[in-house]
Computed example of a mutant assay.
Amino acid sequence: MNNPFLEIKKLLPFEIALSLSEIVSVSSEAIEQLSDKEKSELEQCKSLRRQSEFVTSRITLKEIAGRIGAGQDLEILKDELGQPYGKNNSHKFFVSIAHTNNFVFCGLASKHPFGVDLEPVDRTVSDKLEQRITHPKETEILNEISLIRLWTIKEAYIKLRGQGLRMNMNEVQIKRESDWIFVKINNDKRAKICSFRLKNNWLAIAYYH
């Protein structure tokens, strides 16, 4: 099967490994692929859904690490803000993870921070959430792209910043540069966000430029 990310990666100015995986069930075989620390983290996941997401993301990241020569012993940790990162004996890696009901999307990069997000194209967003998503100066952009696509673009940027719930989407102003490239325009660091459709999902990757 051809790598669906080859064309996407050509647009990014840094090396990154990406994978989109269907969520797996929490089986004994899957759990055996986790480290002792990851098994302990799994026990802290309250819902079966969250457990499946966790197992799938960790297995996927191990597969990515093995593929790029980073070693399958890569350990996934979190910083003081809850931002994930990868670490092996000799190197620290940038990591970003996104989930839908059916898929886990993971990225791994050795030299450049980034953020990813993923949402189904057909996911509906209520009109009352529009004000919480859109910046006051973005009245025209929704004539060009769907609200759920804008959501993924902004969520990827927020993950890039590592601020999670500390930043509201309507604080982020986005400008469209092309069919696939968007720019965050109102802060000190210039960020670009690539937005693509893949397997009936909107996929976004944000990075500083």
Results as ranks from 00 to 15, higher is better:
E7Y: 13
L118P: 01
V104Q: 02
N89P: 05
R123G: 00
I193V: 15
K37R: 08
A206W: 06
I31T: 05
S28P: 03
A156E: 02
D188C: 09
G115S: 02
T124M: 13
S90K: 12
I31Y: 02
G162C: 07
Y85S: 00
F54L: 02
I31V: 13
L198T: 04
S146I: 04
N143P: 03
R50P: 03
N200A: 06
A156V: 03
F54Q: 00
R176M: 07
K189M: 12
Q83Y: 12
P120C: 04
K137F: 14
L20W: 04
N186P: 02
E119R: 02
G115E: 02
I64P: 00
S126A: 15
Q51E: 05
T124W: 10
K87V: 11
G66Q: 13
A204L: 06
K184T: 07
V172G: 03
G69P: 05
F14D: 07
V104P: 00
D122V: 11
S47F: 13
K92P: 03
D179C: 10
V104M: 02
L108I: 08
D79Y: 12
L18K: 11
F103T: 01
I59D: 01
E177I: 15
P113V: 10
I59P: 00
L12M: 13
T56V: 00
H135E: 13
A204C: 06
E138P: 07
N2H: 14
C106H: 02
L129W: 11
I185V: 13
N186E: 11
A98T: 03
L150W: 06
N89L: 12
T152W: 05
I153D: 01
K159T: 04
N201S: 02
V24W: 08
R132T: 15
R50N: 10
S110R: 13
G164R: 10
K9N: 09
H112T: 13
K10Y: 09
Q44L: 09
F54R: 01
N186T: 09
P136G: 06
L48F: 12
L165Y: 12
E29R: 10
R176C: 02
E80L: 14
E7G: 09
V172P: 00
T139P: 06
Y207I: 08
V116E: 03
A109S: 15
F182T: 01
F114N: 07
L34P: 00
M169F: 13
G69S: 07
P13H: 11
L108S: 01
N101R: 10
N187A: 09
I148T: 05
Q44E: 08
L77V: 14
V125Q: 07
N143Q: 09
I16G: 01
D117F: 05
I97R: 00
K78F: 15
R176A: 06
T134G: 09
T134P: 05
L198G: 02
D73K: 09
P4G: 03
I16V: 15
T134F: 12
S57C: 01
K37W: 08
R58K: 03
Q83S: 15
N168W: 06
S27F: 06
E155K: 01
M1Y: 12
K192S: 12
T60I: 01
F196N: 08
A109D: 08
F94N: 07
R132D: 15
Q173N: 14
I205Y: 08
G69D: 10
E53A: 10
N201F: 04
S19P: 05
E53Q: 15
